[in-house]
């Protein structure tokens, strides 16, 4: 469904964000992408969303190469990015203006019910809590019925209770239409709780270090032995990716010192 093929991304300031990155996400699959800071997780999502272009290689959705934002791809950002001059209904229906008014209204009302905010149509974004605002942001992305939904650390700014609540809400929403989900997160528990596969990235420049399939039945529970065992594997892989990065940085530093 979503395919990254030999991606290189070098920013104009010379930062080498991604290298030799190839990855494929199947239809309806939930893939969590984790890794240390600076390993290009958000860059990867921006490329998939068509907000940036790779320096070389290609990103495609169902064989359509993504060079600009595409209707098949939706994105939820770390912060809700609601438009403050539109009420909740206006924000959710923002991408549906091509639809007849009645159909747009129906989709918005249904989305509000699904995210547990029925009756909030006329509320202003400033009147919402952080969790409610992020729910609206997820609903805004999902009402457009994308085949691929990208989530860039959508729950990282929320408290633990709200985060757990939203993780369950996200799974429920995903069950309804089963889009492909690419979730960038720093939270290993969250990755295992939600994903079918965890992709561990290593930094400087970013690339795939290891892929771990999560074969646990849903709903998953953090305290189950099987869950904890998978968590250990992921943490081990994460340590490995960071250790490799430290080793590479140290070698580069030695080379640089030798050069002096």
């Amino acid at each position: 469904m979503l395919r990254f093929d030999q991606i290189e991304k070098i920013y104009p300031n010379g930062t080498h964000a991604l290298t030799h990155l190839s990855l494929e996400l199947d239809a309806g699959e939930i893939v969590a992408i984790i890794g240390g800071s600076g390993c290009g997780k958000s860059t990867l999502l921006r490329l998939a969303a068509g907000l940036d272009r790779p320096s070389s290689g290609s990103v495609s959705v169902e064989d359509t190469v993504i060079t600009a934002p595409h209707e098949a791809v939706g994105i939820v950002f770390q912060e809700p990015r609601l438009l403050p001059w539109l009420d909740v209904a206006g924000n959710i229906g923002f991408g549906l203006t091509h639809l007849p008014r009645a159909e747009r209204h129906e989709r918005v009302v249904r989305a509000l019910e699904r995210i547990g905010l029925a009756g909030y149509e006329s509320a202003w974004p400033r009147e919402l809590s952080g969790g409610q605002a992020q729910r609206v942001s997820i609903a805004r992305a999902l009402v457009a019925r994308p085949k691929v939904l990208l989530l860039d650390e959508p729950f990282s700014a929320l408290d633990a209770f709200t985060r757990a609540d939203l993780q369950h809400a996200l799974l429920a929403l995903w069950e309804a239409s089963r889009p492909t989900l690419a979730l960038v997160t720093h939270d290993v528990e969250e990755a295992i709780l939600l994903a079918d596969r965890v992709v561990v990235m290593q930094p400087s420049p970013g690339r795939v270090f290891k892929e771990i399939r999560i074969d646990l039945p849903r709903p998953r529970h953090r305290l189950d032995d099987a869950f904890i065992a998978v968590e250990r594997r992921v943490l081990h892989a994460l340590d490995g990716s960071l250790g490799l990065a430290r080793q590479r940085a140290s070698t580069q530093a030695n080379v640089a010192v030798g050069g002096w």
Binding site: A49, L51, P69, H70, E71, G74, R81, L83, G95
Partner: peptide, 9 residues
């Protein structure tokens, strides 16, 4: 905020 508009093409 502008990126939201870009995402919705």
């Amino acid at each position: 905020i502008v990126e939201v508009g870009r995402v919705f093409r």
